[in-house]
Design a protein around this nucleic acid. Structure first.
Length: 577
DNA sequence: GCCGTTTTCGGCCCGACTGTTTTCAGTCG
């Protein structure tokens, strides 16, 4: 049983308990543990196998949860969950996805009208049965009816790159808004999460009404969900929510800190404030003296954190993982930046499924400040992309030798290949061909539905191949579209470590593979990560920054990233002569 | 359900907005 599966089970318990109106702190305990376990770098199943007692050493896991996790790992189930499932039909959890419907309202609908599905709820609304329930009314009924359609897509989150495009449009839209003195985005967008649920805008404005009117008039605004004195929410035509907060200057830093989150990070911040006789909310830091509250700070984030003797955490690290520990030890890691990257070792040309020539890719990379690139077109197995046969690969490498002569001093094109790992195992090109390349990427495009053991075995075989330098997009996931393939990543990483191979952080915004949690694992094992664009065009080189954000979220520094090195240093790193 | 330089019991972050109320509960972030 994987950590993700254990976490899913605990989350489900939390959902079901919440539905039963259990103690909210008890619910939170389950949710916190699920989150911790999802982020945990060691496999809990192996921890259980080695030493069960160790479980309670994990923050947020006490005797009770430890016992439940052991039961879960050893039997695949836990009695409490089975019990809960028998009490609450799981289909009712779908009701919670309707905006404005939480556990209380969902429970009322279930208990009083016997509703267990969105279809039944829709019928009940249309028959005007819902408005008569206590605590409900005509408006609530209409809201629910409108929300049922949204429920299907409510779980869909924007890719960070999409959120960034929307954010840039909004920033532009507000550029000449009169009276706006400060404008910033918070939330998971600012934290650089791979997907973003909604956008949070913070504004200091002389005229709140004008600022809110400006958001209402945004060309992508579909409807206004809520609008008060300081807060407003809209939905875009694409169905994404944008929240706007107008705050006074002296609260801007506090509000930015507050709305950047994460929620878990803020819970810790506020807990620390409380211990010092302070209170932090979105309006500022206040000293509590009996009934009296005195404003202490709030203009900038630095002021807010300083009241707790904390540094301004890079937003990417505000996930209540290691950042407070790092702060206590005297500093944050010096996170990787785009400027640190010297080379890009994964890209395609029109020889296969790319759109540009070798020379064009080289020129575009040089213009972006890189010192070396590897041309890594697909191998023959990827027939749809016109993958390279041995003869065509060798031909392309001769061409690269020629083009290299015309390159500016200090810039170099490497002869590479993205060689497929065949369904039955083994590489798609013979060793004597691979031996002639500067850079060999092994990747898996076919047989992705194979069982765990088989896919893992194929991957381990590739890692053991002496000519392979790195593994591309190691889990194959596509955000919002395809789950990772079944693979024992712990074994794969251990093998990469043993054979001195690199793992990729593919910067394509749909991939971002490895994930932040898996990058942390790689770092702990001391495996260098290579951040590549996998560009299929010259513009494709621009995705590098998405990969950098992801690496920053994992706390990675220049030293952790292989392609911050020069090419001669890289060669050494992978044992090439 | 977790946790402890106040504590092994009694806390657990905090406020805005809405709708249904007539002082507040529920939801959300």
């Amino acid at each position: 049983m994987t950590n993700a599966q254990i976490a899913d089970a605990l989350d489900l318990i939390a959902d079901l308990l919440e539905f039963q109106a259990a103690n909210p702190f008890r619910v939170r305990a389950y949710r916190n543990s699920a989150r911790t376990i999802r982020d945990y770098s060691e496999s809990l199943a192996s921890v259980v196998a080695m030493d069960k007692r160790k479980l309670t050493e994990i923050e947020g896991i006490g005797d009770d949860l430890a016992l439940k996790i052991v039961t879960l790992v050893e039997t695949g189930d836990v009695p409490m969950l089975a019990e809960l499932k028998s009490q609450v039909p799981q289909s009712v959890l779908a009701l919670l996805r309707i905006p404005g419907v939480g556990p209380k309202k969902a429970a009322a609908l279930h208990k009083q009208l016997g509703i267990v599905s969105l279809d039944q709820l829709q019928a009940a609304c249309e028959e005007h049965k819902v408005r008569d329930l206590k605590g409900f009314g005509e408006k609530t009924e209409q809201l629910i009816l409108a929300g049922i359609g949204l429920a299907a897509t409510a779980s869909l989150r924007m890719l960070w790159a999409e959120a960034d495009a929307l954010a840039q449009s909004l920033r532009e839209h507000f550029r000449d808004c009169p009276g706006v003195q400060q404008f910033e985005f918070g939330g998971s967008y600012r934290r650089g999460k791979e997907t973003v649920g909604d956008l949070d805008i913070l504004i200091v404005a002389a005229d709140e009404t004008a600022a809110m009117d400006r958001l209402a008039g945004f060309e992508q605004t579909s409807d206004v969900i809520a609008r008060g004195d300081t807060k407003m929410s809209i939905r875009t035509h694409a169905g994404f929510q944008v929240d706007l907060r107008v705050v006074p200057q002296e609260s801007f830093g506090a509000a930015l800190q507050y709305f950047t989150g994460s929620k878990e990070h803020n819970v810790i911040v506020r807990g620390r404030a409380k211990a010092r006789g302070l209170k932090i909310n979105e309006w500022g830091v206040f000293k509590i003296d009996g009934e009296k509250e005195t404003y202490v700070a709030g203009t900038t984030e630095a002021d807010v954190y300083a009241t707790l003797d904390l540094p301004v955490f890079p937003p990417e690290l505000r996930e209540a993982r290691k950042e407070f520990e790092w702060a206590e030890q005297g500093g944050m890691p010096d996170l990787i930046t785009v400027e640190d990257i010297r080379g890009d070792l994964h890209m395609h040309t029109h020889a296969t499924d790319g759109t540009a020539s070798i020379a064009e890719m080289a020129a575009a990379a040089y213009a972006r400040g890189l010192a070396y690139i590897a041309i890594t077109d697909h191998s023959q197995r990827v027939s749809m992309a016109n993958g390279l046969t041995p003869a065509r690969a060798l031909e392309q490498w001769q061409e690269i030798d020629r083009i290299n002569k015309d390159q500016p001093p200090g810039f170099r094109i490497l002869k590479g290949i993205e060689c497929d790992i065949l369904e039955k195992g083994g590489m798609d090109l013979p060793d004597d061909v691979l031996a002639q390349a500067d850079w060999v990427i092994a990747s898996l495009h076919y047989g992705q539905k194979q069982p765990r053991a088989q896919i893992t075995e194929r991957m381990l075989g590739a890692i053991a191949n002496p000519y392979v330098c790195q593994i591309a997009h190691p889990t194959g996931r596509l955000l919002n579209r395809r789950e990772a393939y079944e693979i024992d990543l712990d074994l794969v990483l251990a093998a990469a470590k043993e054979h001195g191979k690199l793992v990729e952080l593919n910067a394509n915004p749909m991939r971002l593979d490895l994930s932040d949690v898996n990058l942390i694992k790689a770092k702990q094992l001391g495996i260098p990560v290579v951040i590549n664009t996998d560009a299929h065009s010259t513009d494709g080189l621009n995705v590098l920054r998405y990969g950098i954000l992801q690496a920053r979220r994992a706390g990675l520094t220049k030293a952790d990233i292989a392609n911050t090195r020069t090419w001669p240093q890289m060669k050494k790193l992978v044992g090439k002569k």
